[in-house]
C-alpha cells in the first residue's frame, strides 16, 4: 500500500476499545471492535486499496490484535508524513509484521511485529428475518455537525422516522428540557430517503456518539433501520485516488420500559 495514512485515520475512528478482531478475506481486510455487546464497529479496506494483496483461501485469517498499538505503528512517522506500508502475516500465533517507509525521507524504515491472539467470537447482530424498514443517505459532515450540536449531558436519543413531514426528527431529553431537531427529506444533507411506516427508536446517545470520529473522516453515511430496531450505519470514505474504504456500525436499540 502506498499510503498508510487513510487506513490509520479509519482505524482511529473505531478505536474505542483496546483490541480488535482482524480478518483478512479475499475481498479485503476487516477489523471489528465491540462495545459492551451493544455496538459493533467494523472498518473495511477493500483489496483494491492495496497494490498487492494475497490471502490464502484454504484457511481463515482471523486474529485479535491491539488496535491502539496498530494505529501507533502506522503513525510512527507522524500524521504529516505519508508512508508506504507492507503487511505480512504467516499463520496462527505468528505476529503481524508491518514494514513502513517514509516517503519524503528515503533513509528511514520501520519494522513492527505486533503480537496476535486468538480471536474472540463476534456478535451476530444482523438478523436475516428482520426486514429493512427505512434507509437514509446523508452527507457525513452535515450529520456530524448535527450530532455535535446535541446536548452532551443527555443519555438517550430518540430517532423518529416517518413518511410524513417532518421525515426525520431527533429528540434528546435533558434534565429540564427536551430538544428536537427536524430534518425534512428536502434538506440539503439528505441525499435519499425511504421509509415505509413511522417508527420511533431509542438509543444510548453515548453509542451514537461513538460514530462521530468515523463521520469526521467520511463523505457519506447510510442509515438503515430494520424492523427489530437495530440501527446500521454505513460510512463511506473516499480517497483522492477514487478508491474507497468503509466503516460500519451496528447499534442495538434501547427497549421501551
Amino acid at each position: 500500500m502506498d499510503s498508510g495514512k487513510t487506513l490509520c485515520s479509519l482505524l482511529k475512528a473505531i478505536q474505542f476499545q483496546e483490541s480488535a478482531v482482524f480478518c483478512a478475506m479475499q475481498e479485503g481486510l476487516k477489523l471489528t471492535v465491540e462495545e459492551g455487546k451493544c455496538v459493533q464497529a467494523s472498518a473495511y479496506i477493500p483489496a483494491d486499496n492495496f497494490n498487492e494483496y494475497h490471502v490464502r483461501d484454504d484457511v481463515d485469517v482471523l486474529f485479535k490484535i491491539s488496535i491502539a498499538v496498530l494505529t501507533e505503528c502506522l503513525n510512527i512517522f507522524g500524521s504529516a508524513e505519508e508512508s508506504s506500508l507492507k503487511m505480512y502475516y504467516r499463520c496462527e500465533g505468528s505476529p503481524l509484521l508491518l514494514v513502513l517507509q517514509a516517503q519524503s525521507f528515503s533513509n528511514v524504515m520501520t519494522d513492527c511485529e505486533i503480537a496476535t491472539q486468538t480471536a474472540d467470537t463476534l456478535l451476530e447482530l444482523r438478523d436475516e428475518d428482520a426486514e429493512e424498514e427505512s434507509k437514509l443517505v446523508l452527507k457525513a459532515p452535515a450529520f456530524l455537525g448535527l450530532l455535535a450540536d446535541l446536548e452532551r449531558s443527555c443519555d438517550i436519543i430518540e430517532i423518529n422516522l416517518s413518511p410524513e413531514h417532518p421525515n426525520l426528527s431527533i429528540v434528546t431529553y435533558g434534565m429540564q428540557d427536551r430538544s428536537c431537531i427536524e430534518i425534512p427529506k428536502s434538506s440539503d444533507m439528505v441525499q435519499s430517503f425511504t421509509c415505509e411506516r413511522a417508527v420511533t427508536l431509542k438509543y444510548q446517545l453515548y453509542h451514537i456518539r461513538l460514530i462521530m470520529k468515523a463521520l469526521a473522516v467520511s463523505n457519506k453515511v447510510v442509515l438503515r433501520c430494520s424492523s427489530n430496531g437495530l440501527l446500521l450505519l454505513q460510512l463511506k470514505l473516499e480517497k483522492e485516488d477514487q478508491r474507497q474504504m468503509f466503516s460500519e456500525f451496528y447499534i442495538v436499540p434501547l427497549l421501551d420500559d
Binding site: 510512527i76 528511514v108 513492527c112 503480537a115
Partner: peptide
C-alpha cells in the same frame, strides 16, 4: 513490549 516489537532504522548517517 508484550504487544509489539517496533524498530525504526535510519541509514546513511
Amino acid at each position: 513490549t508484550d504487544m509489539a516489537k517496533v524498530s525504526t532504522r535510519f541509514k546513511d548517517l
